[in-house]
Amino acid sequence: MKLFATAFAAAFSLLLPTVLYAADYKVEMTNKAADGTVMAFEPRLLRVQPGDTVTFILKDKGHNSVSIKNAIPDGAAPWSGKINQEISIKIEVPGVYIYQCTPHFSMGMIGAIVAGEPVNLAAVKSLPFNGKAKKIATEIFAAIEAGK
């Protein structure tokens, strides 16, 4: 019994730092970013660790955050925020998560979260993005590859 208790305590102590040090990040949904980009998530690219939480904050009305199908890691939970509502998501699986504002996708309102290593970057880069979303996606992918 003592051996079990010791093993349990050791295992729990390994998990404790993850629980205690999980971070909370904010992404604003805005009509105009600080760099002048119209209809944007700010920051556009966010680097986190698995276990962290990301909250999408409504800075201006008319926005939402929705994960893009096939643009999140295998096994990750998709999300779909409602228009004009903040949403918090817990990032559990390492990889690249690409998301959009549904009404402003055609205007290039997409963003990315990289959790740990971008293990699914090649798969996400192969997805068809069009118009301004393609331009923004290309910029995001370049920043991920550059380690920014």
Results as ranks from 00 to 15, higher is better:
Lys59Thr: 05
Lys134Thr: 06
Lys90Trp: 08
Asn120Arg: 01
Ala23Arg: 15
Ile140Thr: 06
Lys26Asn: 09
Leu16Ser: 11
Pro43Asp: 12
Gln49Ile: 11
Ser65Leu: 06
Asp24Glu: 15
Pro118Val: 02
Ala23Thr: 09
Gln100Ala: 05
Leu15Ala: 11
Lys59Ala: 12
His104Glu: 05
Pro50Asn: 14
Gln85His: 11
Ala133Pro: 02
Ile110Arg: 00
Lys125Arg: 13
Thr102Cys: 04
Thr30Val: 09
Ala137Gln: 03
Ser126Val: 04
Asn31Phe: 02
Ala7Asp: 12
Phe4Trp: 14
Gly75Phe: 13
Leu3Arg: 14
Thr37Cys: 06
Leu15Ser: 06
Ala71Tyr: 01
Leu127Asn: 08
Gly108Tyr: 03
Gln100Leu: 07
Phe4Ala: 10
Thr102Leu: 11
Ala40Leu: 08
Val119Phe: 03
Phe8His: 11
Ile72Met: 08
Lys90Gln: 14
Pro50Ala: 10
Leu127Asp: 01
Lys134His: 10
Arg44Lys: 14
Ile91Lys: 04
Pro50Leu: 02
Tyr25Leu: 08
Phe8Ala: 12
Asp24Thr: 14
Val66Asn: 15
Leu14Trp: 13
Lys26Gly: 00
Leu20His: 06
Ala9His: 05
Ala9Lys: 14
Val96His: 00
Val38Pro: 08
Asn84Ser: 13
Ile91Cys: 10
Glu42Arg: 07
Gly95Ala: 05
Pro118Ile: 04
Ala133Cys: 10
Ala112Gln: 05
Thr53Trp: 10
Pro17Val: 04
Ile110Asp: 00
Gln100Cys: 07
Gly147Leu: 12
Lys125Ile: 08
Ile68Phe: 04
Pro94Gln: 00
Ala40Gln: 00
Val119Pro: 02
Lys82Ala: 11
Gly147Cys: 03
Ile136Asp: 00
Lys148Phe: 08
Glu92Ser: 10
Lys2Val: 15
Ala10Thr: 13
Val114Leu: 06
Ala142Phe: 08
Leu3Pro: 04
Arg47His: 13
Gly51Arg: 02
Ala133His: 00
Lys82Tyr: 11
Pro43Met: 01
Ser106Leu: 07
Met107Gly: 12
Gly81Met: 07
Ile110Met: 01
Ile113Tyr: 02
Gly131Gln: 07
Ala143Glu: 14
Gln49Phe: 12
Leu46Ile: 05
Phe41Met: 02
Ala112Asp: 04
Gln100Glu: 11
Lys61Asp: 13
Lys59Glu: 11
Gly81Gln: 01
Thr138Asn: 11
Ala23Gln: 15
Val19Arg: 09
Arg47Ser: 05
Ser67Ala: 07
Val93Arg: 04
Ala40Lys: 04
Ala122Pro: 11
Gln100Thr: 11
Thr102Gly: 07
Tyr21His: 15
Ala71Asn: 08
Tyr21Met: 13
Thr55Cys: 14
Lys61Gly: 13
Ile91Val: 14
Pro78Asp: 08
Asp60Phe: 11
